[in-house]
Amino acid sequence: MLSKNQEIKSPRNVYGETLVELGAKNPNIVVLDADLSCSTQTCKFKNAYPERFFNCGIAEQDMMGTAAGLAYEGKTVFASTFAMFATARCLDQIRNTICYSKLNVKIVATHGGITVGEDGASHQALEDIAYMRSIPDMKVIIPSDCNEVKQVIEYAANTKGPMYIRIPRTNLKTIFSSEYKFNPNTGVKIRDGKDLTIVSNGETLIEVLNAAEKLHAVGIEADVLHYPVVKPFHHIALKESALKTKKVVVVENHSVIGGLGSAVCETLCHYAPSKVYRIGTKDTFGQSGEQRQLMEFYGLTDKKIYEKIIRFMDVK
């Protein structure tokens, strides 16, 4: 399932290219953006099918409402902007108009998490998953490499209902081989261990895999679970792993409040009470910095994850 060749690719390019491919097959697909089409790469769709692309300008509330209207008329709508503006700015429209009416709107938000980098706190969405996860009927997906981004976008185009898909600004290393098939109905075990369970998704999955390798070198064997679908949260893979290891670490490029870590805790307290350690940004805003520096500062690099897990494993 894992790729041997760690190619580096832009998930935003893959998103734009996938939209163009889907748009050729399905004339019902329309795409909206809020003045960031060059950054989100929805401009690729605009260039291919200008009549099916609508730039709503710097007006995210209007974009989500317009997306809803198009969806009411049977269109499959992709609406994109940065994660910060695709969620908090228009949360009411997403809740009361898109989700309440179960509309076929796919919010594909780029620039999720701390790795937005130099733009700083105002542009670093660290709470978007928490917002989206709390709305009934919303599906939340955070793919981890470009192969998966493509499959998730295809899945979104072919599945009715509201979805929030978060992709990062940064380029992603290939994790999955071409045999990997995205399955929306389960968490995926991608490394087998017995001493602890590590759960992750998005950009941090590669860091977790590298950290697991370092742990292996000191005799700690980690089960690594990839949970691209944060909501609805499919508990079985997590439950089975946690019952075995009794220790769970969650790593995410998001606040420890309300994201994957919370989903894991909510699940485990019911199915397999375990000691859980959540690694993510604390209850704090981000700041400007170079992407890798920020990952280091907020403890999301493989090295930091490794160090934190070593300390966690000592806790009785």
Partner: peptide, 29 residues
Amino acid sequence: SSRTKLPGIEVSTGSLGQGLSIGVGMALA
């Protein structure tokens, strides 16, 4: 609420300021 499938109800509203954007989307479609 369009969720309840009451004949004649096109869209869900209630939180103010959203109907016109929905109308714009419908008109575009």
